[in-house]
Design a protein around this nucleic acid. Structure first.
Lengths: 260, 260
DNA sequence: AACGATTTGTTCGTATGTATC
DNA sequence: TGATACATACGAACAAATCGT
């Protein structure tokens, strides 16, 4: 009796799921049936104990519950594969993620117009843009969807100084065909010649759960990509944060010579 | 009464945490105190309702509970930063992650001797090594720690054919100073000239939870890096899967010219 | 070392609400 | 509409871990 009952039940169900006895999409026995199934000596276990076991499986991302229907083994969604582009000459589509034509084949990407704000820089933004904490920055925020499915949240920060130097495009709530990096080159002569990316995986915030349509119940992480771009003098040009839901995204990188 | 009580309580506590009223590491009021605090008209709410609220916060990674002590706001650990190396000439330390000297300064990495097995290839392994499903492969598995903290689990797969062609080092349960990639070049003349990486974030398996010492309670993801290496003829040389706990790891990539 | 107080963990029972078929 | 299934909320009892006396 070392293991609590609810863990024993969860462990047994987990085994059935991972062995394939319970296939993805399959319905588990109802809570009432499981009470009977795991009882001993004709004595049922409590419905609450069954529910505790199911909660443990939910927290591990193995099952989901649907009121009025039952408990179901989670289906694996086919992840969307994005190429991380390491060539500074090849443009900078989607703020750090290069969507190859093949991968987007037949898919319908949508991008909202940016929400533009002037803000005091957070510590994170200030350090990446080498500003004083609290210095003024432009933030441009966009939401992206693919085939109607929420795909990414992206915010890019630029020093306020760029506007006073003449890059008034930064304040316009619209997308530019060749991207803001090219706009800055045209209007200020600032050319991005390199960047540094940091990749993080973490639990989603409340806003992110809402946008990505993640119920409180599912246990998923989000990717956070932070990209700092630099000009020829080594000064930061912009700082971009992009968030992706980890359950429907994978990223690919290539190095050297590979086939295909 | 649209929102269930346990969510209202969780939401209020979340606000206190994110506003800083409850700092990282701080102890929440005990369950008994919270019963009183969120009751109305002198009537306390049930302890189970308080506990449901706390479970919700746990699942979001905001707090942790310690028996006999209380519930505490989660502390953010300082993540370990690894550089992803995109230069095929610069070696391939740590199976895909290049640990710069600076980042390892003062840290003590430990690597177990590999556990070597001959296995039938899974579908995943077979497809990356371009073998028939069920074909024989060598698997070499290692665990890595830094300063005693579990850091990564790594398994590399090689075609069994390499052994019959003379690369008997593949079967030795020891580490080679310059890495297996160099060994294959020396013994078979197979030179890795490029690779493809896939990056995934997902919930940890049971084994991974054990190795990384993640309790059932904390909601964290793991990074999974899959690297397929190719030789000059475009044939796969090896397939490496490395798993990192996402709560203590970040990854960095650089492109073009950047300062520092 | 022992004990009691405090706090969280597990298990049960019960009632009622809401969603689905 | 009724039956079924999960969701919320309450109460109760005992176990296990921790801490101070």
């Amino acid at each position: 009796m070392a293991e609590p009952m609810y863990r024993q039940v969860a462990e047994d169900l987990r085994r059935q799921i991972e062995s394939g006895d319970l296939a993805p999409g399959a319905r588990l026995r109802s809570e009432v049936e499981l009470r009977e199934e795991y009882g001993k000596d004709g004595k049922e276990i409590s419905r609450n104990t069954v529910r505790d076991a199911i909660k443990l499986l939910i927290s591990r991302g193995l099952v989901e519950t649907r009121p009025g229907q039952g408990t179901f083994v989670m289906r694996q969604v086919v992840p969307f594969l994005s190429r991380l582009n390491m060539d500074p000459e090849a443009g900078d589509v989607e703020g750090g993620v290069y969507k190859s034509e093949v991968e987007l084949q037949g898919r319908a990407p949508e991008v909202t117009d940016p929400r533009v704000e002037v803000q005091a820089a957070s510590d994170l933004v200030a350090s990446h843009l080498q500003l004083q904490p609290g210095g003024q920055v432009i933030s441009r925020h966009q939401q992206r969807k693919i085939d109607g499915t929420p795909w990414s949240l992206q915010t890019t920060f630029y020093p306020m100084e760029f506007v006073t130097r003449g890059a008034t495009q930064l304040l316009m709530a619209e997308n530019f065909k060749d991207g803001m990096v090219k706009e800055l080159e045209a209007s200020l002569g600032i050319k991005q010649v390199g960047w540094r990316d940091t990749i993080i995986a973490r639990p989603p915030t409340g806003n992110e759960r809402t946008f990505f349509d993640l119920s409180d119940k599912v246990q998923v992480a989000v990717f956070e990509f932070r990209r700092t771009g630099y000009d020829e003098d080594g000064n930061p040009v912009r700082f971009t944060v992009t968030v992706y839901s980890a359950d429907r995204n994978q990223f690919e990188m290539r190095a050297g010579r590979i086939p295909g």
